[in-house]
Amino acid sequence: MRCSDHVSPTEELITLALHICSLIRDIDQTVPADGAYHVVRFPFGDAESSDAHEMHQIEQPDGHTIEDWDSESRSGLIWPSVSGWASLTAMIQWESGNYSELRDRFVRDPLDLAEGSDSTATDHRPPSPGMQCFTKHHQIFVDPDTPLALAVAHDDSSGRRIVHAQFKLAIDDDVA
């Protein structure tokens, strides 16, 4: 017996939708040597990997318009298009430096625009030889009223560059 034999001709097939936003940054971003977390900023439009569900827009859902994506922390925000169970994925590549620790985390509402900042999946990493390349994955519930971001920090004595970053969100809207 085949799986399709269990579906009667009158039953509807259910299609689950994934709402996806995939951001890529190929331009260096300098992170100050202040020990604080900083939102990784991402370009808009053709420089994005994918934003079919309009979760990373110059015109933000709260009415703010981003003038300069490379200097405004708001350009690092993904505003979920629906509520649901979400997979967050990131890749961060730092230049080599005099680090003893590199830090990264996902943050709900990092700029206190909604309910207040709430970080999750915080990693403190010792450096490896040469360039620092890291990936991370975490799953959380998301809501359209609460933006998400990838934030990073380091403990070097001078500012250091992120030379490549990716931030991806996939929401299963069937789990709310």
Rank of each mutant, 00 (worst) to 15 (best):
L18Q: 14
L18C: 02
L18W: 07
L18A: 13
H19G: 01
I20M: 11
I20H: 10
I20N: 14
I20D: 15
I20T: 09
I20P: 00
I20E: 15
I20W: 04
C21F: 02
C21M: 01
S22E: 14
S22P: 00
S22F: 02
S22A: 06
S22R: 13
S22K: 09
S22Q: 08
L23C: 04
L23E: 07
L23P: 06
L23M: 11
L23D: 10
L23I: 09
I24V: 13
I24W: 10
I24D: 13
R25T: 03
R25E: 10
R25N: 13
R25W: 04
R25P: 13
D26G: 08
D26A: 10
D26H: 04
D26T: 12
D26Y: 06
D26F: 06
I27F: 12
I27P: 14
I27L: 14
I27Y: 06
I27W: 12
D28C: 09
D28F: 11
Q29T: 07
Q29R: 09
Q29L: 15
Q29G: 09
Q29K: 11
T30W: 12
T30A: 15
T30I: 15
T30L: 14
T30R: 12
V31S: 01
V31Q: 06
V31E: 05
V31W: 04
P32C: 03
P32Q: 08
P32Y: 02
A33M: 01
A33S: 08
A33W: 01
A33E: 04
A33L: 00
A33I: 01
A33C: 03
D34G: 06
D34I: 10
G35C: 05
G35E: 07
G35N: 07
G35I: 05
G35Q: 05
G35A: 09
G35P: 01
G35R: 07
A36P: 00
A36Q: 08
A36D: 13
Y37R: 09
Y37E: 14
Y37D: 14
Y37S: 13
Y37F: 13
Y37V: 11
H38A: 03
H38D: 05
H38L: 02
H38S: 06
H38K: 08
H38W: 11
V39F: 01
V39L: 00
V39Y: 01
V39P: 01
V40W: 06
V40E: 08
V40Y: 00
V40Q: 03
R41L: 00
R41P: 00
R41H: 00
F42Q: 10
F42Y: 15
F42V: 10
F42S: 06
F42T: 10
P43L: 01
P43D: 09
P43G: 02
P43H: 04
P43A: 01
P43V: 02
P43N: 06
P43I: 01
P43Y: 04
P43Q: 04
F44H: 14
F44V: 13
F44E: 15
F44T: 12
G45E: 09
G45F: 04
G45N: 05
G45C: 03
G45L: 07
G45D: 10
D46G: 08
D46P: 00
D46F: 11
D46S: 15
D46V: 12
A47Y: 11
A47L: 15
A47F: 12
E48T: 07
E48V: 09
E48H: 03
S49T: 08
S49G: 03
